[in-house]
Design a protein around this nucleic acid. Sequence first.
DNA 1: GTGAAAGCGCTAACAA
DNA 2: TTGTTAGCGCTTTCAC
Lengths: 343, 343
Amino acid sequence: MPARHRPVATLATVAAAAGVSRQTVSNALNSPELLRPDTLERVQQAIERLGYTPNRAARNLRTRSSQLVGLRLDPTTEGTVSGLMDRFLHSLAESCRGAGLHVLLFTAEDVNDPLDGYDELLRSASVDAFVVTDTYRGNPQAAWLAERQVPFVAFGRPWTEPDATHPWVDVDGRAGVMLAVDHLVDRGHQRIAWVGWQKSSTIGEDRRSGWVDRMHERGLSTSRLSARGEDTIEYGRRAAHALLDQDGEQPTAFVCVSDTVAMGVLQAIAERGRRPGPDDLAVVGFDDSPAAQVVLPGLTSVRQPLEEVAVQVVRLLEDRLAMRNIEHPHAILTPELRVRGTS
Amino acid sequence: MPARHRPVATLATVAAAAGVSRQTVSNALNSPELLRPDTLERVQQAIERLGYTPNRAARNLRTRSSQLVGLRLDPTTEGTVSGLMDRFLHSLAESCRGAGLHVLLFTAEDVNDPLDGYDELLRSASVDAFVVTDTYRGNPQAAWLAERQVPFVAFGRPWTEPDATHPWVDVDGRAGVMLAVDHLVDRGHQRIAWVGWQKSSTIGEDRRSGWVDRMHERGLSTSRLSARGEDTIEYGRRAAHALLDQDGEQPTAFVCVSDTVAMGVLQAIAERGRRPGPDDLAVVGFDDSPAAQVVLPGLTSVRQPLEEVAVQVVRLLEDRLAMRNIEHPHAILTPELRVRGTS
DNA sequence: GTGAAAGCGCTAACAA
DNA sequence: TTGTTAGCGCTTTCAC
């Protein structure tokens, strides 16, 4: 580090300036109620005057905490549009600020090893906790961290381990899809198709259950209206064509498991000379990606409340770090529907 | 922090296990060439066996460095599609790993104050350096940081202060637009329009100069082919309509300052019953956003080499932190053109 | 309510 | 080549 204009103030500097001991300055910061009001005032003025901020490394060493939350950033899949991470990261950093925490990003040397990177940060006490985001496929990180009693909060339910007791926050995808179905039924649609992910995707099946159940609740059939495949535009395109090629009753609306898939559906609709929208073929996506906002004529989509997710994640993180044992350290948040031109 | 299964190893633990002094263990880590091979071997085995990783806080306190690089994350503008930050952040975190650094995210309490947040991290020695990304509008951060001799690297040129000597990395937008113009001219277009940002945007004018100069170099006129406005879909839409409504010679292709604007142009083209693509009206965007990859029929776009930007940023960061004074601590990288259906 | 002493885990400087 | 000493800046503990 280079020379500063003014040497950085320390406890000792401030103590000397205020005519008290170092300890008193420390107390003024961490336990102000211990000081006599006039002493406190004097110390605070010295702090202010010298522009003193406690040295993090020293404080961390002493308190054995870093006030840092680790988050592993994996490469974004090209050709996929959700754009969730951007929004989530900002919200998380923002919420952390309120808790006196910061987000430390790290990446894996071996991307295919879901555990890579965690251990070293832990052993070096570089972070106090982790936020785990990619919990979709079996998430071994959660089990690994829980076993070692490492504080962490997951964004995403432990689908495959319902007994897991670690804190997590998730968005109710099923409820989001129900919003979409209700919206379409209210607009007069009856043949509403589902364009989803493979059966192996628990998230995909959860979202699909919202379609199945709400369709039945509204007295509608789901027969021959369901497709499953991967998260690509091409799959969405082919699925829409296949559904529209069926003999007999064809869908008048598509509820899609993701915006990416929905973009493929829109493509198929255009290729058939049909028009996406309430008058012809309605389409609803999932994630409210930037693309949904700009595609023609605007893709109606289920929006995850990531700002609120971040708030809840940090709340659970604080509980965990303070060793407060919460009854049910979980939160399931309900998404909302952003209605645009395609419905 | 909760109890671990095994208490975390320290220098003392390892030293005892290896039968050497603490200092020797420290040297084994930081200056292994000082040790006799057999001692080194013995110490390394002890380190391995105990799973020892140096405590960051202690090391930071002693070395007066944190190995952390601060990056301020501002809210993403909704309705805009670039999605650059996602890609850049991952690349930066990745490059940092190679240099033994980590990225610390922070946010401003007052978003409108471009300096907010930097000072506190600095005074508390929480970070060794900053990466500054939003250098487009006059970037007072760069001046502020440079004045205080704080190590930082900017992603973005100091447009308004050509004398600034701080390290920076930028992408040659002008060259990127030239690629686009060449591509379109090679495909037979002659009336190629520019849909850009306001004159007050230096980045916008730089990109525009690529259009102007390359058009002239190729013997083509730019007369009545230029539009300027804000970074919104709606502006792009209106600009395209206006250009196509002109009497006489209308454009056959549009080079856009951003993918967001390009999406508006595509919208206008559709509204007029025309078709985007090489056979009718060609469109090229800028940023290769996820939206460009999924919109119909695929938006040709100028892609910034963010992975390489991150590598260069970290390289300059390392030079700066090591107090190596480089001649010209700058790098201008050339983007590439991703050709898709709209051209 | 305030101050003195101790020590967190590490590395720079120096001694052996 | 290895070990000893000291101290980074802070907070915890305990006297006063």
